[in-house]
Amino acid sequence: MAETPGDLFLPRLLPPQEFFAEGNRGCQGCGAALVMRQVLKAAGPDTIVCNATGCMEIISSPYPETAWRIPWIHVAFENAAAVAAGVESGIKVLRRKGRYHDRRINVVAVAGDGGTADIGLQALSGALERYHDFTYVCYDNEAYMNTGIQRSSSTPYGASTTTSPSGRESIGQKTQKKNLPMIVAAHEIPYLATACPSFPLDLMDKARRAFQTVGPTYLHILAPCPTGWRHASDLAIEMGRLAVETGAFPLYEVVDGKLKLSMKMETRKPIIDYLKPQGRFRHLKEDDIKEIQRRVDENYEKLLRRAELDEGG
């Protein structure tokens, strides 16, 4: 992990250029906008973004305003990876024929959790398998926030959304959060990582590594959403930090098939610290929280064991 007290002044060394512009229409405290800002700082100007329909697309491109200072295209919801595949293939052949720049271009597909784990999963899987030289960035705000906080397969267990509401007969989301990064890892791509903008240096290091790697790479980035998670907007960074420090959203990399935890936490903060400030979890009872804690521990232990195994091998 990069975030040690000695690194506190490191932000001053980060690239000052903003490729995701101020004046975008993101909600107050939008984690996804921050994800984009940090990712593009790592990417630099030689980058093309293929954006799925969703929060990021809506808040960034109401004609004639655009938040993008790099070339950007939006085609549809479920096909960001396929569009990126076309962009990458096009550049490859045109470069060969002397009709495009020779320098390396980061081709980046950007989609939310719905556009990735649900409707866009097929296109993502296809593009990874075909081994296009591109980076897929999933900003995971854990529901369809743009359309009004409906559940996705990436919504965590127990979260109340507008289509998985908590009620007399329901805890809210009844299913466990889909483990997208591990589904992606099963494609045996050269690099993938989980990240969170609350750990910006870690995020940007991983993004840089993804962009520098030839072949398909994947970044799964937690994007706290004050609107959908129902917490105060100033707590967005804090929520991301707690998601990581409780083990609810562990940070790791899988490099050439080997998993490495970005910070190994033998002891972790109790999950209630993360759940309590969020309105989407407010209805949870003590037993529910115990069950969530048990699950988080179980998943984290699994990751620890896998990391040990991979390091030993």
Binding site: I48, C50, I73, V75, A76, E78, N79, A81, A82, V83, A84, A85, G86, V87, E88, S89, G90, I91, L94, Y100, Q122, A123, G126, A127
Partner: peptide, 13 residues
């Protein structure tokens, strides 16, 4: 669906 999407991406460059 991806065929036409990839065509869009390629044509866009």
């Amino acid at each position: 669906h991806s065929a036409m999407s990839a065509c869009c991406g390629a044509a866009a460059v």
